[in-house]
Design a protein around this nucleic acid. Structure first.
Length: 264
DNA sequence: CGAGATGTTCGGCT
DNA sequence: AAGCCGAACATCTC
């Protein structure tokens, strides 16, 4: 599920736990989502720690606890964060549960394409500080986008939008939405865009992120009615602009829906 | 029952 | 040699 706006929504699900102490930690040591984590040390460190704040950046989340403890969360394809009662009994896919006096903070991920990380230190971990500029930030500039396209002249637009190093937080449905709004074929290659077209791509990328943050991120409400979002899930979908049946292709290894008529 | 799923990484080919 | 593609990861749903 989770792309930029869904991630921001899930981050907030743990807000009831802010400023509360973790009394007990349950986790599934040895599972894929905890690869590379020293789980014994992490349990020890987080037990008794207070959750102070959290932040989302693209598809990444970071939770800061007392004692210089940082919990990184990536939701992968099927990850979710939720709050349950203090007496919650963890299910098979609840790979990390932080129990507090009033509630339990749960990380669930059946497919385990997600990733948990635990770091210690006075400042946020290096991997977090190294994340590329958020699309919504002033540092995400047209120059940056143009430069990136220039470096991948033969790559399809659909594929380039999925590259987290330049378009952090964009996932499969957002990429399709951006291309539909910009009226570009997903198969078109980066090197083929005129300078005006790369500006359009950049603008629509920003607009889709903003719109998603204003709807999905708030309470999981769907984006506005006129979005491509609503028709792209089914092969029977039709273009909201011209009612043309949608085309389904695999581009960059991902299912891609688009309108052959208006996305030249 | 088989196919596909809103993601990332790795290995191999060009 | 960088860039690109397909496979793999683990499980559930349609």
């Amino acid at each position: 599920m989770p792309e930029l706006a869904e991630v921001e929504y899930y981050r907030k699900q743990w807000n009831p736990g802010l400023h509360h102490k973790v009394s007990r930690v349950e986790l599934h040591a040895g599972k894929r989502v905890l690869r590379g984590v020293n789980t014994a040390a992490m349990v020890k460190a987080l037990t008794g720690a207070t959750l102070f704040e959290s932040e989302a950046h693209a598809k990444q989340m970071l939770f800061r606890f007392s004692g210089g403890n940082w919990l990184g969360v990536h939701l992968g394809m099927t990850g979710k964060l939720s709050v349950e009662s203090a007496g919650y009994l963890p299910g098979a896919h609840d790979h990390l549960v932080l129990f507090q006096e009033q509630q339990a903070l749960v990380f669930t991920d059946p497919r385990q394409f997600g990733l948990l990380r635990w770091d210690t230190g006075a400042v946020a971990p290096q991997w977090w500080r190294d994340l590329p500029p958020a699309i919504i930030s002033p540092e995400f500039t047209l120059e940056l986008v143009r430069d990136f396209l220039r470096h991948h002249p033969r790559l399809a637009l659909k594929s380039v939008l999925l590259m987290q190093e330049r378009f952090p937080g964009v996932g499969n449905w957002m990429a399709d939405e951006i291309l539909w709004r910009a009226k570009f074929s997903p198969h078109r290659v980066c090197g083929a865009l005129t300078s005006a077209e790369s500006k359009t791509l950049c603008q629509e990328t920003r607009a889709v992120c903003k719109g998603a943050l204003e709807s999905v991120a708030v309470d999981f409400t769907d984006p506005p009615k006129d979005w491509f979002f609503h028709v792209r899930w089914s092969p029977k979908g039709r273009c909201p602009r011209d009612n043309e049946p949608l085309q389904t292709d695999t581009v960059g290894g991902r299912t891609t829906r688009w309108c052959k008529r208006c996305q030249g």
